[in-house]
Write a protein that binds this DNA or RNA. Structure first.
Lengths: 218, 218
DNA sequence: GACGGGAGCGTAATCATCTGA
DNA sequence: ATCAGATGATTACGCTCCCGT
């Protein structure tokens, strides 16, 4: 807001002539003092009647003082629209023609549009840059996750393979117990046989074998 | 850049009201009296007044004809800068003062800047929207990957736990083979004992046991 | 009530001036 | 002098209000 209005000249002394004098409008020839006899300027464009056009205009631009601009700017900050009431009040406060105030507001609005656009652009630009950066971050994050996932799947693959191998060629506790039982059963049976032997007094191993085989297959 | 040059007057009689952009300004909607300190229905239409306003002078603002503008526009399309040569040539061709041509070019450049900014803005806007969309896609992709990763880790956890359990309370092939060997060894030893029995003609199981224990612990 | 038109504001586009580099 | 940028002023047109016929 304030940054836009930097006026080097100010009203403090130089051109305050038009301050409370609307009549000044019809005169005021602000053209630069470069008279005709000024610099020869070498070739190019001899001085033509450039001033002629300007002079016909008669009323040219009178710059508003910084005081006036400040007040106008404050009012503009409040409300960009301008009702007749406010316009007239401002005009009398500033010593300006109401139409000038209206024009000022019109121009201010028009220029405010561009400023706004510029501002919006910078904001959007910042947001976009940020978004792009975030995108790269997300992208790398995705890469990382993908790698982790690949590793995990590899791990799973290995574990599953091992499990399959064990499941096929290995044995569970039951199997071992069965195997262990087998030993015990053997012993028990042997013991039974021995008991029988003791009771029946077998002397020939052949007979024991026969007996054992009978018991087992039964 | 013919599209840019739409002048409401002259040859172009079509409506130009489309150019109004309501987004920038809140268009003065038909509502009246909704403002805060708005006038209490103070109908501002006073008496019809004589139109003596602002007839500051006979200054007519010479507007350039569409012909002139067209030529200027063509030249501007070629080159935004204006060398003195070209300026003078154009001025004489158009029947204008060279300074007018220069001014026209200056204003045209300024206008072009804003148009360019507007264009850039729309482009940037599009790019940003796209980036935001991509971001959401990447984000959801990340979510998916994270979930997959979590599932994979969970799977690994389960597999590892099972493996640990099996490792602790289960047995490998070696164990089973050992157990199986145990049975065979038993058999072999028994057979040996029987052979011994046969050879030595043991009749008492006690003796056999003694013999067996001796063989085993040896 | 409907209709024509002026007053007055708004926007967009222009033209022009001034200032500073 | 030229240019860019800020700014004043004009022109042209759209709207709404409000009044007089």
């Amino acid at each position: 807001m304030a940054a836009v209005n930097l006026r080097p000249d100010d009203d403090n002394s130089t051109l305050i002539s038009h301050f409370y004098n609307p009549e000044i409008y019809t005169q005021m020839l602000p053209q630069q003092g470069t008279a005709e006899g000024n610099k020869p300027t070498k070739r190019r464009r001899r001085r033509s009647r450039v001033k002629e056009v300007a002079s016909t205009a008669g009323l040219k631009k009178r710059k508003l003082s910084s005081e006036q601009v400040k007040l106008l700017e404050m009012n503009f900050g409040n409300e960009h629209k301008l009702e007749t009431e406010r316009k007239n009040r401002l005009a009398s406060e500033l010593g300006l023609d109401p139409s000038q105030v209206a024009i000022w507001f019109q121009n201010r609005r028009a220029r405010w549009k561009n400023q706004k656009l510029e501002h919006q652009y910078s904001i959007l630009k910042k947001a976009h840059d940020s978004a792009v950066l975030q995108k790269t971050h997300l992208q790398s994050q995705i890469e990382k996750l993908k790698q982790q996932l690949a590793e995990a799947k590899n791990e799973i693959q290995k574990l599953v393979e091992v499990r399959e191998i064990n499941r096929r060629s290995s044995v569970t506790m039951d199997d071992v117990q069965a195997a262990a039982c087998w030993g015990e059963i053997l012993m028990e049976e042997y013991e039974d046989v021995f008991c029988s032997m003791q009771e029946n007094n077998y002397n020939q191993p052949v007979e024991w074998y026969l007996n054992y085989n009978y018991m087992y297959t039964n």
